[in-house]
C-alpha cells in the first residue's frame, strides 16, 4: 500500500487571465473557442481536454483529428463545435497529416499558426505510433496531443496498448483482464530526444494550459499526453470525472511531469494516496482481488520511484 511519504506540495500557479468584478482571478484564458452543441457523452474527459487546449492555443490553430472519439464529438456535417479549422484524417495519420500541413504553412510563409494533431490513445500508441515517431524524429513543427482514455472508446471500449494492467475492456473480459502493463508513450517519445514531452490531466487545467502554452513557444515537435477519464469505458458515474483525474495524480498512477530538453520536472502530490482509492470507483477494476490491487500498488510505486530518480539526474 501507499508509503505515505512526505513530498513537497504542488507549487501554486501565478499566471492570471483577468479578474471578475468580485475579484476572482481567472487562472486559464476566458475565451471559449469550442462551442457547446458537440455530441460527447456526459462527463467526457476528452471534451474538457479540447476545450482547455483551444483556450491555451487560441484561434490561430489548425486541428488534425484521426479516427477517434473526437471524429464524432465535433458534430456531424455540416455542424462543427471547434471554431478553428479542422481536418479529419485516417486513423494512423494524425502526425503525418499534421507534418504536411505544417510544411504547407511554411511554404506560405506562415510561421505562427499552431498545427495541433489530436489523437486518442489507440491512434497514438498503436496504429499511429510509426507516423508519430517519424514526425518526432524529423522535428516537424507540430504539437501532438494524445487524449488518453485508455482504450478504443469510440469503437466500443476495446483494449489498446495504453489500457492499464488489470482493466476490463470488451476485448479483455474479466476472466482474462488485461495482464500487460500500459505502454509508456511519454517515455517512448522522450527517448526520441524530443524538445518537449509532458503528461497532463484534465483535472488540472492550469497545468495543462501552461504546458500547451510552453509547447507553443518551443520549435520542432512537441508531445503532450492528457489523461481523459471516460465514464462509459471506465464504468463510473459521470459526475466523478474530475475526482478520478485528481485521484490518478494523487495516487501517482498517472504522474504529471515534463521532459524539456531531456530534463525531467515532476509535479508531486501533497500526499501519495493508495491506488485502491483510485481503482475502487471504477467498474473496469471491480473484479480485481486484493493480490491484483497489491500488484498495481507495487508497479505504481516502482514507476514513481524511477521517475523521481530521472528527475534527480
Amino acid at each position: 500500500m501507499g508509503r505515505g511519504k512526505k513530498i513537497s506540495p504542488v507549487r501554486p500557479r501565478k499566471r492570471s487571465y483577468g479578474k471578475r468584478s468580485n475579484g476572482v482571478r481567472f487562472s486559464i484564458p476566458q475565451e471559449e473557442i469550442m462551442s457547446p452543441g458537440h455530441v460527447a457523452c456526459q462527463g467526457c474527459g476528452a471534451t474538457l481536454a479540447m476545450r482547455y487546449a483551444l483556450k491555451a492555443l487560441g484561434r490561430n490553430t489548425i486541428v488534425v483529428i484521426p479516427a477517434c472519439c473526437w471524429s464524432v464529438i465535433d458534430g456531424p456535417f455540416p455542424y462543427s463545435s471547434l471554431g478553428v479549422p479542422l481536418f479529419h484524417t485516417a486513423f494512423e495519420t494524425a502526425a503525418s497529416t499534421a507534418s504536411g500541413i505544417a510544411a504547407g504553412l511554411e511554404m506560405e510563409g506562415n510561421k505562427d499558426t499552431n498545427v495541433l494533431a489530436w489523437a486518442g490513445d489507440g491512434g497514438t500508441a498503436d496504429i499511429g505510433i510509426q507516423a508519430l515517431s517519424g514526425a518526432v524524429e524529423r522535428r516537424d513543427k507540430i504539437i501532438y496531443v494524445c487524449y488518453d482514455n485508455e482504450a478504443y472508446m469510440n469503437t466500443g471500449i476495446q483494449r489498446s496498448s495504453s489500457t492499464p494492467y488489470g482493466a476490463w475492456t470488451t476485448t479483455t473480459p474479466v476472466e482474462e483482464f488485461k495482464s500487460r502493463p500500459k505502454k509508456n508513450m511519454v517515455e517512448i517519445i522522450a527517448a526520441h530526444d524530443i524538445p518537449y514531452a509532458a503528461s497532463a490531466n484534465i483535472s488540472y487545467p492550469e497545468d495543462f494550459v501552461g504546458k500547451l502554452k510552453k509547447a507553443k513557444g518551443i520549435p520542432g515537435a512537441k508531445y503532450i499526453q492528457v489523461l481523459s477519464p471516460c465514464p462509459a469505458g471506465w464504468k463510473y458515474s459521470s459526475e466523478m470525472t474530475i475526482r478520478l483525474g485528481k485521484l490518478a495524480f494523487e495516487t501517482c498512477v498517472y504522474p504529471l511531469y515534463e521532459v524539456e530538453g531531456g530534463k525531467y520536472i515532476v509535479k508531486k502530490p501533497a500526499r501519495k494516496r493508495p491506488v485502491e482509492e483510485y481503482l475502487k470507483h471504477q467498474g473496469r477494476f471491480k473484479h480485481l482481488t486484493k493480490t491484483g490491487i497489491e500488484q498495481i500498488q507495487h508497479d505504481v510505486d516502482l514507476a514513481w520511484e524511477k521517475l523521481l530518480r530521472k528527475e534527480s539526474i
Partner: peptide, 8 residues
C-alpha cells in the same frame, strides 16, 4: 475556419 471530412 471550416471542418473538412466530418461525419456524414
Amino acid at each position: 475556419p471550416h471542418t473538412f471530412g466530418g461525419l456524414t
